[in-house]
Structure formats: structure tokens, C-alpha cells
Amino acid sequence: MSVLIYTELADGQYKKSSIEAINYGSKVAAQLGISSIVLAIGAASEADLAKAGNFGSTKVLHAADANLVAENIMAYSKVLIETAKSQNASVVVSAKSALADAVMARAAGALQAGLVGNVVELPDTTSGFKVKRSIFSGKAFAFTNITSDVKFLAIKKNVLALEEGTASAPVEKISVDTANLTESSKVTETIKATGTLSLPEADLVVSGGRGMKGPEHWQPLLDLAEALGAATACSKPVSDLDWRPHHEHVGQTGVKVSPNLYIACGISGAIQHLAGVNSSKVIVVINKDPEAPFFKAADYGIVGDVFDVLPKLTAAVKAM
């Protein structure tokens, strides 16, 4: 029996959210007295993959066949299904992401496994297998008992403190036949912003709304984000108006983030926007309207003109 952790790589390194999944999965394994095994798909060095040991895993299985270099839902899920079977996995853990959701879904479907998403705490395994998860886009929690033999958990970002040790995990190459699966869909073009931080992965986020008055006025916000090392985001009206790209849209129908710090600039705080940011640890709101509803959901607020306030914040960060 084992806990199998499905991880994702970016530029040959575990994504931060995947490190969180390894940390979480290893704690579940310790709780159940079974081994913690990591599955990594794609190109990466053995030394980098072995770092899973720092966060409690005892073995890394690396699938790196040539056709797995590009992300593919059908092929990746086949690898996960076969690995879960060969490792006799009773729990499969991943961090939530668009790709991981799709891959975990297919694998859970194949393995007849109950799947619970947006998990926010370690499971209670004293009687049954109960997990606490966020529901209604962060407006409530549900304690859910998983009754199937194999249990799938997708964890929310930033839910557990990382515990880093110095152990290294042995890396084993695996090969699963997925050739016919990568043929069923083919990527014709990838359009990806370069040199910007990944929004779902970011610990710090600076976000702009219609109060920024137009795409040509974004510079002060970008300056603050750069000084902080933060990812940039926006409200739905801003992405609808094409002021910023759609993948920056945070809210009910966009990306849902849970960073340590979310700074909202010129966003009124419609309930649809709050649904995407209410799991943030600390929320700062800057708005010239003191009646903006976002202040009710904020930890810190500044009533003022964003174009006056943003440069002051950037200067203060640079002086840190």
C-alpha cells in the first residue's frame, strides 16, 4: 500500500504547488504507516527529482518517454492509472491545477475512486477517511468521508506549512505505453506569456480593476508587482475589455487564487470577484471609493487614487 503523489514539473523542477502536494502526501503516508511515492512526468534531472525526499517521499517514479514531454491529459492519466495499480496506491494526492484536475479525474474514473477537490487540511483517519474541503468557491467548508478503496485528494494551495529535511529519494525510471494516446489529440500552437510569474502558483499577487482606467495605465501596478516579485492579475471586466489577457482573470469564472498576499487596485469587490480571492491569507484593497464593498473583505485598506498610492508602495518595497 502507498500514497501516490502526482506532481507537475516546470522547467525540470517540481512546481511549488507540487512540493506542497509531496509534503501533504508524505504526512498522509506517515499517518497511515505506508510509503510515500512521487510520480513525475516529463523532462527533469535525477538530482532535481530526488528533492522529493526533502519533503518526506521515499521513492520517485519518473516517466519521461519522448511523447510525454508535451502535456497530454489522456497520456498522463494513463501513466497515473498504471502507476497507481503497480504501486498498490490507496491514496492518490495532487495539487489542484487545470491539468492535474483533468488527469486526476480520468484516473479516478478508471480506478472507481472517490475524489475530493480543494482539500484544506490533513485527513482524519481515526474512523473512516474524512477530509475538510473548501466549497462554494471558498464561502464554506464540508467534511467529507471517502468510502471507496482508493481515495483521490486534490489539495488547495497554501494549506499546510512545508517541512523540509535533507533526505533524498531514489529515482526510478518507468515506462508506460501511451503512444496511441498522444496521437488522439495534437497541439498545434501554444501561446504563453514569457518571463511572467505563474498566477495560480504565486505567493504574492497584485491585481487591477476598472479603476486602473485603461491598459495604458498599467505600469504603476506592474512596477509594484516587479518590486515585490508578485504575479499580476485582473478583474473580469478588465479581461472582458481585453485590457489584460484572460489567464490573468481572477474570480468566480476565472482563476481562483490563495496567495499569502492579494493587493487589489481599483477593484470594487463584486461577489463574483471575491469568490476567486477569498482564500487569500491577507487582502489589501486600494480604492478611491470608501464605500467599495471590497473593504469589507479586506485586512488592510487605503482610500485613495491608485495612481498616487501605487508609486508610494513601490518606493517603500524598494526601500525594504
Binding site: 472507481q112 475512486a113 472517490g114 475524489l115 475530493v116 474524512k130 475538510k132 466549497i135 471558498g138 464561502k139 464554506a140 467548508f141 464540508a142 467534511f143 467529507t144 468521508n145 471517502i146 468510502t147 471507496s148 477569498n278 484593497v285 473593504f295 469589507k296 473583505a297 479586506a298 485586512d299 488592510y300 485598506g301 487605503i302 482610500v303 485613495g304 487614487d305 498616487d308 498610492v309
Partner: peptide, 22 residues
């Protein structure tokens, strides 16, 4: 079903927003 919700919980109420002058 393979899962069952046993209990729900609302998040703790948000504390007051600390205001800082512009």
C-alpha cells in the same frame, strides 16, 4: 456515491479592515 458529506462549516468572520491613509 463514493463520498458522503457529514458536516458543513462556515469560515470564521473576517476581522475589521485596518485603514491606512493615502
Amino acid at each position: 456515491s463514493l463520498t458522503a458529506i457529514e458536516k458543513y462549516e462556515l469560515p470564521p468572520a473576517k476581522g475589521a479592515c485596518k485603514m491606512i491613509s493615502a
